[in-house]
Write a protein that binds this DNA or RNA. Structure first.
Length: 892
RNA sequence: GGGCGGUUGGCGCAGUUGGUAGCGCACCACUUUGACAUAGUGGGGGCCACUGGUUCGAGUCCAGUACCGCCCACCA
């Protein structure tokens, strides 16, 4: 007996091998210039993050690919690291400060940034350590961070290059502003949500007293910033008013009525108030008409105490102000109507505050020209999305690309490397802090206070981590990377930006394939969110079911199926059991192989079952390899599962027991142990990319070829490939026949309640010589697996009385029945069976009787259906005669 | 408003070029036979969301409808 316990204990095995792998530093990067290369850049998690289901799923898929390629002998780089996550991290540390009663301004910029560094040094690698539990084989010796010195150099080079070439400019325009985070946001950092609000219809009286124009707005508090009322130039209702003057309600400021085709005649009243400082579209209208752009709401979202805002509203918070304004309008009888209104409202992605469009000075990247080559590489499929439908997500965004606001009013991040000379007002960008103005040599320079959008730095991730802008060996060997695997929500936020920056700076694509994995939702189909408290913690699941079971589930989801999958704990339970099954199969194999030294298979001495399992196994290896090549992780997982459980455990191991006993009895050295070793050892390697822990543990204890003696781990063993010389259709066919016989006997036994503990006699008549030979080859299997004794196999003979029988192919299987038969039960089951057969038969006959079908359908189709009909007819008569047997037993 | 996914036995899903509907879990029955009861064996259960169309034949192709979900979007 093996010393191993019968139940698989994942925690023990995982700890053991994690320790071993790290002690031997097996994850350090090694490069052999002779070998081909494969590389993946891990999407860097935020330093503030905890491992969630998405990370775990994505980490598993990447690790499967990495381990697979490593076993194939590639130079493999899996670049890990973290993102400094500007807003998130600053928020976390500010929250900490708040507990101490302080704000970041109390500390000042320098001390605050130092404080964030402290935080990051303590907690910043937490998520990477959580990744360890999953068994990911990062190159742990190459951990990168977006604020490493080398990485910062890359950012500075990128910025300055874009600046010098005129792609970066400063603009004063309306941007998304978060009044809580006190920073601007890019369009992609704003989440739009359907929100219940109101549409207010407000009268703007004409200055000449001849009536009024009614405008529609959702934000009446912004009206003090109005500079015009716009109508569509071709709108007959309003044509006469163009050029006239209306009076702004409450403050009575005169506003011109202008014409602009931006106005939608269908919406609201067809008259639109123009507030350039607080609405992006109005800003554009304002530009076109050369209008002023007074601000009336400040960066905290309060009404500004200025000349435009009536005193009573000064300093009022924007939503409070809205109420007040509406009340005032009502009392002046200028509020025509208040409609309930559902509209998309922008929220800050980080803190869920309603976005305030605010006029401010920000840095932008001019995108149009940069996007062009990035569009081309996807259109030409030099960068391929998997599944392909996501290419259109990317392309739709890129076709309609708008300039990218890259400045953030934060302290944590990469400070924008632009300095302004206080002496001559020269503005320029520098990779290193300048000591003097290049224009006037003055030393009185001031750096821009803002930092860069976090995504500006992550856009450079795949090449900045490899040492760009230096021409490093790593870049030469591993760039472009092979695959990028990520979630669809950051296709535009991140993937698109990596593509255009790589093309711009490195002159090549950053990766060849982009895998977009599904999103894991809660069991009831909701979005998992930490703040809602409905998120499942993968670490808890790993504790409960083991890392390998979790990984197997992730692999089984694949990337080509549904775009969303629901979390199901029973899946994990299923795969935990699968690991247990594998473990116990391993125990049996290890027991059987005690003292065994691997030997080459003697082909001529293989039994039918040996040939069959070798055929199946080599087909499995072919499927696994093909599947991985095509990113069909789900197919690979299912193929491994079915082979292991059905073919190997349920059939071959049971047969192996028979063969091992025979070999022992006869003293002949059979092939069973060789086959067991070959298949199981190979299976461990084939399964290793998905289930690294359990396969390592079992593999280490298996007798192995001396070729593997020097290896520290299964992870360096060659990935098994099919040997087509083991493909064997003949064995497959014969074995299928035996399986059908065994199942038929089992079925008869249970139908007639033959006790499982007793042996049953069986007689098989088989006129076909070939089939009879197969039967004789497999007679021991039949005896053991169907508990048959004695077994008679003959070309033909007397039909035994009181026997149930089943027709299979050219054979008839008889099981003489003992006296203990439950007649009623047996009859009802037979009748049920008869009905099913008749139903099928009817369908088949209908098709066959159709003359059109016979004329038009392919010949093989007709023939196979004909064969099916014959088979069904045989079965029908079999059932019928069994029913007769029952009647006879009743009579007697 | 635009785009994309999904709708197949109680639940979760497969269904390759159209040719008598499969798998896992759950369910029922039997079985503790020396890898595993976290198991084995046998079994029951579906008019493939709906409506039309193409075809000898549609879960599979085409058109439309409904519901669920996701992404994108400057209609106040």
């Amino acid at each position: 007996m093996s010393e191993v316990r019968s139940a698989y204990n994942p925690a023990e095995v995982e700890q053991k091998w994690t320790r071993q792998w790290f002690e031997l530093a097996l994850f350090d990067l090694t490069v052999d210039p002779e070998k081909p290369s494969f590389s993946i850049a891990l999407p860097p998690p935020n330093i503030t993050g905890d491992l969630h289901m998405g990370h775990a799923l994505n980490g598993t898929l990447q690790d499967v690919l990495i381990r697979w390629k490593r076993m194939q002998g590639y130079n493999v780089l899996w670049q890990p690291g973290t993102d400094h996550a500007g807003i998130s991290t600053q928020m976390v540390v500010e929250r900490e400060l708040k507990k101490e009663g302080k704000s970041r301004r109390d500390l000042g910029r320098e001390a605050f940034v130092a404080r964030v560094w402290e935080w990051r040094n303590e907690y910043g690698n937490r998520i990477l350590n959580q990744y360890k539990r999953l068994g990911v084989s990062f190159n742990w010796d190459r951990l990168a961070f977006t604020m490493d010195d080398g990485y910062v150099r890359a950012i500075m080079r990128a910025f300055v290059t874009l600046f010098k070439e005129g792609f970066i400019y400063r603009g004063n325009r309306v941007t998304n502003w978060c009044p809580r985070c006190l920073t601007s946001l890019s369009d992609l950092e704003v989440e739009h949500e359907e929100t219940r609000g109101h549409l207010y219809l407000i009268k703007y009286p004409l200055a000449d007293g001849s009536g009024a124009l009614t405008v529609a707005t959702t934000r009446p508090e912004s009206m003090f910033g109005d500079v015009a009322v716009a109508v569509h130039p071709d709108d007959p209702r309003y044509k006469q008013y163009i050029g006239k003057t209306v009076l702004l309600p409450i403050s009575r400021r005169p506003l011109p009525v202008i014409a602009d085709s931006y106005v939608d005649r269908e919406f609201g009243t067809g008259a639109l108030k123009i507030t350039p400082a607080h609405d992006a579209n109005d800003w554009e209208v304002g530009q076109r008409h050369d209008l002023p752009m007074p601000a009336v709401i400040d960066e905290h979202g309060r009404m500004i105490a200025c000349e435009h805002v009536p005193v009573q509203f000064h300093e009022l918070e924007r939503f409070a102000a809205r109420k007040e304004v509406v009340g005032e309008l009502a009392s002046e009888h200028l509020l025509v109507e208040t409609q309930d209104y559902l509209h998309g409202l922008g929220y800050c992605e980080r803190c869920h505050t309603v976005i305030e469009p605010l006029l401010s000075e920000q840095w932008y990247v001019k995108m149009k020209e940069l996007a062009e080559p990035a569009i081309k590489v996807v259109e030409e499929e030099r960068v391929v999305f998997v599944p392909p439908r996501y290419a259109s997500t990317y392309l739709d965004w890129m076709y309609n690309i708008r300039d990218w606001c890259i400045s953030r009013q934060l302290w944590w991040g990469h400070r924008i490397p632009v300095w302004t000379c206080r002496h001559c007002s020269n503005v320029d960008a520098f990779e290193k802090a300048p000591t003097a103005c290049p224009q006037c040599a003055s030393a009185d320079l001031e750096q821009d206070p803002d930092v860069l959008d976090t995504w500006f730095s992550s856009a450079l991730w795949p090449f900045a981590t490899l040492g760009w802008p230096e021409k490093t060996e790593e870049l030469k060997i591993f760039y472009p990377t092979s695959v990028l695997s990520t979630a669809r929500e950051i296709i535009n936020l991140w993937v698109a930006r990596m593509i255009f920056t790589s093309l711009k700076f490195v002159g090549t694509i950053p990766f060849k394939h982009v895998l977009i994995h599904p999103v894991i939702q809660t069991a009831d189909g909701k979005r998992m969110s930490k703040s809602k408290g409905n998120a499942i913690d993968p670490l808890v699941m790993i504790d409960k079911y083991g890392a390998d079971a979790n990984r197997f589930w992730f692999a089984s989801l694949g990337v080509k199926g549904d775009q969303d999958v629901r979390f199901r704990e029973d899946r994990l339970e299923e795969y935990r059991r699968f690991a247990n099954k594998l473990w116990n199969a391993g125990r049996f194999v290890l027991d059987s192989l005690e003292g065994f030294a691997p030997k080459a298979i003697e082909r001529d001495e293989l039994t039918l079952a040996d040939r069959w399992i070798l055929n199946r196994f080599n087909h499995l290896l072919q499927d696994v390899h093909e599947g991985l090549r095509n990113y069909d992780f789900d197919d690979v997982a299912h193929a491994l599962y079915d082979f292991t459980w059905d073919h190997f455990c349920d059939w071959y191991l049971e047969i192996a027991k028979v063969q091992l006993a025979q070999e022992q009895a006869t003293g002949a050295e059979g092939q069973t142990r060789r086959v067991l070793q070959m298949v199981f050892e190979g299976l461990m390697r084939a399964m290793h990319p998905i289930m690294p822990f359990i396969t390592e543990d079992l593999w280490q204890r298996l007798p192995k070829s001396p070729l593997f003696a020097e290896l520290d781990s299964i992870m360096f063993a060659p990935f098994p490939r099919e040997d087509q010389s083991f493909f064997d259709d003949d064995a497959e066919q014969k074995m299928t026949l035996l399986v059908r016989i065994i199942r038929a006997v089992r079925n008869i036994r249970q139908t007639y309640n033959v006790p499982a503990s007793s042996e049953a006699e069986a007689i098989i008549y088989c006129l076909c010589d070939d089939e009879r030979k197969s039967l004789i080859l497999g007679q021991e299997y039949i005896k053991r697996l169907a508990r048959v004794s004695p077994l008679t196999i003959a070309p033909d003979g007397i039909v035994p009385p009181m026997a149930a029988w089943e027709a299979i192919s050219s054979m008839k299987v008889y099981v003489p029945l003992a006296s203990l038969i439950d007649v009623d039960k047996s009859r009802s089951r037979l009748v049920q069976r008869q009905e099913a057969i008749q139903k099928d038969l009817l369908k088949v006959r209908q098709i066959l009787e159709n003359e059109e079908f016979r004329r038009r359908a392919p010949k093989e189709k007709v023939e196979s259906l004909e064969a099916q009909r014959q088979d069904l007819e045989r079965q029908a008569s079999s059932v019928e005669s069994q029913l007769k047997v029952l009647e006879m037993s009743e009579v007697s």
